[in-house]
């Protein structure tokens, strides 16, 4: 697993090494190869080295869903490519038409965006379609998805993808049907802002970066986790399923929850967007960088996911 210092989240500390004595802050751009430690994220083409070499046998096969209003597919695709996998972009309706089989993949990514325009509640309509619409085989897709999980597959959802997974009942997956919901933010506003969140080292999803504090953007109007009842809540807490938590709650989410997994850790959903932080230069504070370049936390998280999938399929 990659271990590097997280990007300075607090203003007071700033980035390490910012002082008169340290090397000029912007000089790392001049001769990248000479100055970067091996596999440094900023070194040209180094991103691929951190993952698998192209077409490596161990690189998991990733299905990235797109279409029907999802809209983060370009950067999600790029992210998995940067992680060394060969992702495949698949329109949801191609999956419905039986043109792809989940058997060929180890990881299914439910992409962020506004499936069906968030009508009737975010993620709701796409989830309904997966649950209820018969496919060519006569069975709804939820069966294929459950079989995929039973055979050791991974499902990862971001933002609208997370909302879809909760409406499907796959998250937290401790009882049949839907047991949690992502309600409108407490202030009723869509908000785009960068937040700090932490990965619980004891949660089944800790492989995403145990104990790490990550800086990532949230971009949603409906991200407030609401739990159906006390029984579900108690189970979720005891099994440590709410594995990614905001340091400062931006939306009224229960338990400061930013991300959630099922018991096996094979289904994960999160509101913050890791695929929007693939380069250190996405961060709102990148230009305060010192001699040490900040880490692209989103790529870090996804790389950990890909590595874990490759070792646990």
């Amino acid at each position: 697993m990659l271990t590097r210092k997280p990007l300075g989240a607090k203003r007071e500390t700033g980035f390490a090494g910012v002082s008169e004595a340290s090397p000029p802050p912007r000089d790392f751009l001049e001769e990248p190869a000479a100055q970067f430690p091996p596999n440094h994220l900023l070194a040209p083409n180094a991103l691929r080295v951190t993952g698998f070499p192209p077409n490596h046998l161990l690189a998991p096969k990733v299905l990235v869903l797109c279409g029907l209003g999802m809209n983060c597919e370009e950067e999600t695709y790029a992210a998995y490519k940067l992680c060394g996998t060969r992702p495949r972009l698949v329109h949801v309706n191609e999956w419905f038409a039986g043109k792809v089989s989940l058997d060929d993949f180890q990881l299914v990514h439910f992409t962020g965006g506004f499936s069906f325009g968030d009508h009737l509640g975010a993620g709701k309509v796409l989830a309904n379609r997966i649950r209820f619409k018969p496919t060519a085989t006569g069975k709804p897709l939820i069966h294929e998805l459950e079989e995929f999980l039973a055979s050791g597959g991974f499902v990862f959802g971001v933002c609208n993808g997370f909302q879809t997974l909760t409406a499907l009942g796959l998250l937290p997956g401790i009882e049949d049907g839907q047991s949690v919901s992502l309600a409108p933010n407490i202030d009723g506003n869509f908000q785009d802002r960068w937040v700090s969140c932490q990965i619980d080292p004891e949660s089944p999803l800790s492989y995403l970066g145990a104990g790490e504090t990550l800086s990532l953007p949230i971009r949603h109007g409906e991200g407030r986790l609401v739990v159906k009842n006390d029984a579900v809540e108690t189970l979720m807490v005891s099994k440590k399923l709410m594995g990614i938590r905001y340091l400062h709650n931006p939306n009224g989410s229960a338990f400061n929850c930013a991300g959630l997994c099922n018991e096996t850790g094979r289904v994960v959903g999160m509101m913050p967007h890791p695929e929007a932080f693939l380069s250190p230069f996405n961060h709102p504070e990148w230009s305060r960088k010192g001699s040490e370049a900040p880490r692209a936390d989103g790529l870090f998280l996804l790389q950990n996911l890909v590595n874990y999938v490759s070792h646990n399929r």
Partner: peptide, 8 residues
């Protein structure tokens, strides 16, 4: 209120 991060 505007998404300025999408597309990465």
């Amino acid at each position: 209120q505007y998404d300025h991060e999408v597309k990465g």
